[in-house]
Design a protein around this nucleic acid. Structure first.
Length: 842
RNA sequence: GCGGACGUGGCGAAAUGGUAGACGCAGCAGACUUAAAAUCUGCUAUCCGAAAUGGGUGUGCGGGUUCGAGUCCCGCCGUCCGCACCA
């Protein structure tokens, strides 16, 4: 006798074991089937999986299982983005080695993921902290180095002057170091860069072909790359300073050149440094500009400060016009030429600066009304218009004036048209231990020399200490000392490690192919790549995805790959959120510390009142985190998976709720009641309505899963289940229930396997094919048509599908309700949309 | 500051420019039960109305295009995400 209740505790484990033993989800490189590579962004092994992971991997799993049922050879791997700062923090706080901590986390997260029954090919599992992985990454880095795509230059980092260490942006809180509390400074270090800007044009152009990517991500990347065309030109200095005779600037608005009122230099501009040598006040100001961190948000919101150097430059179009030269804290040496000219009337930042230092503000673009040179507003005008107060440019449009100025600059030889990019080269040096060692040896005579490939991997030393802040590799007694591979003299290893974004820029290649002796086999990679569907958080929309696109192109450019785009389709999922709870004293409370008391919430322990706050992203600080483990244990993997797919569209946030998971649990039990009833149910008799609904559901759910609209797929499953429950026993009903097991198999695979076995099938439902659709059953033969009068619904009629316009108009006008509504008014027009509606215009 | 998105019942939402609110949650009423749970049946945007297979209103706010707008366009407001060393 079959259990009346589905027991996930036993069933989940049983089927997970069966799947593992039969190795059904291991991808076959030699398969002759069409390929599908389904990939979710691999997790950072923080210690425990969270609901966001559960949601992400459930979505990918549904697609992977569905594609298998549709006859694809599916690659659906899992691994660990295992390098990064949290491991070093743990080392400092808990006195545990970062590697040990990371590996323990991986072990526990792996077993957590396994309880959810994901169809992963675990045979391909990798962790980026394995020497087998990062050693191959070092080989790729050397390839890029030899391909001329790697170089070294000075770049600013956040420096904590007390701890004497480099800080990540995340470690800078309100401009202060998170541990020391000291005011953070910018400090220049010599660092390794990858030439992503060489690919700027190509990365931009490639976006156009990424049809499977969300429009918003493509737009964000486009803006990030930030192609702008403008004029690069020089302002001659009234008096040359040493060997510097002019200031080179770049502007995207050369049309406003007659509105210029000052030139501003970066604090670390060569001219600033020359002048600071003779001017103590300026030197002090330049020093002051080092205060603060390096983030864009910080730089752009800080108070704009300047220092008048006393120098002047000559306007290129008017030899009698002298402009003052300032040093300003908002001008960055890293962007453009490290110097700008300010046009206060048409740039907000310049306007703020001009008002502060009492500089002229001259209107040169008219908004269509005001044309006077005098500009009174404190809001810059950045819109389109006609040029005014600008000599030979007057009356031109902004675009025409830009071209005119560029042409003139080029013919007169003081400037040239220039394309610049917002995108900067990728700085990959990190002054940290827990990352991939950069495989370079510094030799006094030979310069930077790559580690010979046969000496790879350059392995991280195990004996390190985190007692002192800073990079343990730098302090290690012996590790960095090595002889130069070229000249054999004493030399030093590079002690910086690679940005973890490098690790995640090629893991999808290593999943596809992982030979021992090289990063990947291009022939095998070619079978799987590009990734058919990539799924992950929208927070990766720019950096990770752009870096991965770059890395793929870079490898292609040196002949290691023969495709440019790694991800054919991309889906960015929403976050899992939860209501927040606050105690009277202002402290946050976790969901398991509170209970609902009538309409109000109270603390369980002492009954004191609780205010409920906004529904927001689960975070430790707000304490609104729900740990998946106990939930899976209580309700089973299928209920949790089903909840993750229900209700909220996958790209939007999903509010976690106890009631929601209860509902999913009840649904799983509803399915079970249908499944167990099949064994003693009828094979006789027809039910055309149900059969039609079944086929519509099979087709509809398939389309929804394909589009990753899981919430819609779930709604269609509900409709089918509702109808089956209401239907009388029949052959069609029995068939519908049997098909239902396959329809829900990608979503709730454990109960589906259980049902499949119950139906007497010997093979796994994981190996079953998706039900066939009878196309003729997809269309109804009757349709309900709306009848509107002046766009307002007045009646509905049911007619045969495909009824002609004249007939529909006749029926509409015959309607009593329509006549009442018309009330004898004159009919001007009748709009008839067949199978849809009739609209009577009066 | 810059860039991007989102905004529909009590809640999550659905809706090729064509009947707004499918489906789920919560709630209410009822059935079953000694009782509870589970399950089943019905109702559930809002206002007017005793009710109606009555009518009005309604998709953040203000305009516009259209026979017809949640959907398209313009301008606001609000919320969230990203900003290059968090992953």
């Amino acid at each position: 006798m079959t259990d009346q209740r589905f027991n996930p505790l036993a069933a989940d484990k049983r089927w997970q074991k069966r799947w593992a033993e039969s190795r059904v989800f291991e991808a076959d490189d030699a398969s002759s089937k069409p390929r599908s590579y389904v990939l979710e962004m691999f997790p950072y092994p923080s210690g425990r999986i969270h609901m966001g992971h559960v949601r992400n991997y459930t979505m990918g799993d549904v697609l992977a299982r569905f594609r298998r049922m549709q006859g694809f050879e599916v690659l659906h791997p899992m691994g660990w983005d295992a390098f990064g700062m949290p491991a070093e923090n743990a080392a400092m706080e808990k006195k545990v080695h970062p590697g040990e901590w990371t590996r323990a986390n991986i072990a526990s997260m792996r077993s957590q993921l396994k309880t959810l029954g994901f169809a992963f090919d675990w045979s391909r599992e990798l962790a980026t902290c394995d020497p087998e992985y990062y050693g191959q990454e070092q080989a790729l880095f050397i390839d890029l180095f030899e391909g001329g795509l790697v170089y070294r230059k000075e770049s600013a980092v956040n420096w904590d002057p007390v701890d004497m260490t480099v800080l990540a942006n995340e470690q800078v809180i309100d401009g202060k170091g998170w541990r020391s509390g000291a005011q953070v400074e910018k400090r220049k270090l010599s660092q390794w860069f990858l030439k992503i800007t060489d690919f700027a044009e190509d990365l931009l152009a490639g976006l156009g072909d990424l049809k499977g990517w969300p429009e918003k991500v493509r737009l964000m990347q486009e803006n990030w790359i930030g192609k702008s065309q403008g004029l690069q030109f020089h302002f001659p200095l009234a008096e040359a300073q040493g060997d510097i005779a002019s200031v080179e600037v770049f502007s995207t608005r050369p049309d406003t050149i007659f509105g210029a009122s000052f030139v501003a230099l970066a604090a670390d501009h060569p001219l600033t440094q020359t002048l600071a040598g003779q001017n103590e006040a300026l030197a002090a100001f330049a020093e002051q500009c080092k205060a603060g961190g390096t983030t864009a948000a910080e730089l752009e919101t800080m108070e704009k400060k300047g220092f008048d150097t006393g120098l002047t430059v000559t306007h290129p179009l008017d030899p009698d016009w002298q402009l003052p030269v300032y040093v300003a804290n908002f001008v960055l040496m890293d962007y453009g030429t490290g110097a700008v000219f300010g046009v206060p009337a048409h740039d907000q930042r310049d306007l703020d600066f001009a008002r502060k230092y009492d500089l002229p503000v001259k209107r040169v673009v008219s908004d269509g009304e005001e044309t006077a040179a005098d500009y009174a507003s404190n809001e810059a005008y950045t819109g389109p218009g006609k040029i005014v107060n600008s000599a030979f440019l007057d009356g031109m449009t902004v675009e025409a004036a830009q071209q005119t100025v560029i042409d003139r600059a080029q013919s007169e030889g003081w400037g040239k048209a220039q394309t610049t990019w917002r995108l900067r080269d990728w700085g990959v040096s990190r002054q940290r231990y827990w990352g991939t060692p950069i495989p370079i040896i510094h030799c006094d005579d030979c310069g930077p020399v790559p580690v010979p490939k046969e000496q790879l991997p350059v392995v991280l030393p195990e004996d390190i200490d985190f007692e002192t802040p800073g990079n343990p590799l730098e302090r290690h007694a012996t590790w960095k000392h090595i002889d130069c591979p070229k000249c054999s003299k004493a030399a030093r290893r590079e002690t910086d490690t690679l940005d973890t974004f490098v690790d995640s820029s090629w893991y999808f290649l290593r999943f596809a192919s992982q030979p021992d002796d090289r990063p990947f086999d291009p022939e095998v990679v070619k079978q799987w790549l590009p990734v058919t569907q990539y799924i992950g958080g929208v927070e990766h929309a720019i950096l990770h995805l752009l870096y991965a696109r770059f890395w793929t192109r870079a490898l292609a450019s040196i002949g290691k790959l023969d495709f440019a785009e790694p991800f054919e389709s991309l889906f960015t999922q929403g976050m899992v959120t939860h209501e927040t709870y606050k105690h009277g004293d202002g402290s946050w409370l976790s969901p398991d510390e509170v209970e609902k008391n009538g309409a109000d919430w109270a603390v369980i322990s002492d009954g004191s009142p609780v205010t409920t706050g906004r529904v927001e992203k689960m975070s430790k600080s707000k304490k609104n985190v729900v740990d998946p483990d106990p939930i899976i244990e209580q309700y089973g993997a299928d209920a949790v998976r089903f909840f993750m797919l229900s209700d909220s569209p996958p790209e939007r946030d999903l509010p976690w709720s106890e009631a929601g998971i209860e509902g999913s649990w009840r649904f799983v039990q509803r399915l079970w009641r249908l499944f167990i009833a099949v064994t003693d149910s009828s094979d006789e008799g027809e039910d055309k309505t149900l059969r039609r609904k079944l086929h519509q559901t099979v087709a509809g759910v398939a389309a929804d899963i394909e589009a990753l609209s899981f919430n819609k797929a779930v709604a269609k499953v509900f409709e089918l289940v509702n109808l089956i429950e209401k239907s009388q026993p029949s052959g069609d009903r029995t068939a519908a229930i049997k098909s239902l097991a396959r329809i829900v198999a990608p979503m709730v695979p454990h109960i589906a396997e259980e049902a499949w076995a119950l139906f007497g099938e010997n093979d796994l439902v994981a190996n079953a094919s998706w039900p066939k659709v009878d196309e003729s059953l997809l269309v109804d033969d009757e349709v309900t048509i709306a009848i509107q009068v002046r766009g307002k619904l007045r009646d509905t009629i049911t007619v045969a599908k495909g009824s002609n316009k004249e007939h529909l108009e006749e029926l509409a006008l015959a309607s009593e309700k329509v006549q009442r509504s018309l009330d004898g008014a004159e009919i001007k027009k009748v709009i008839v949309v067949p199978d849809r509606l009739v609209n009577i215009v009066i």
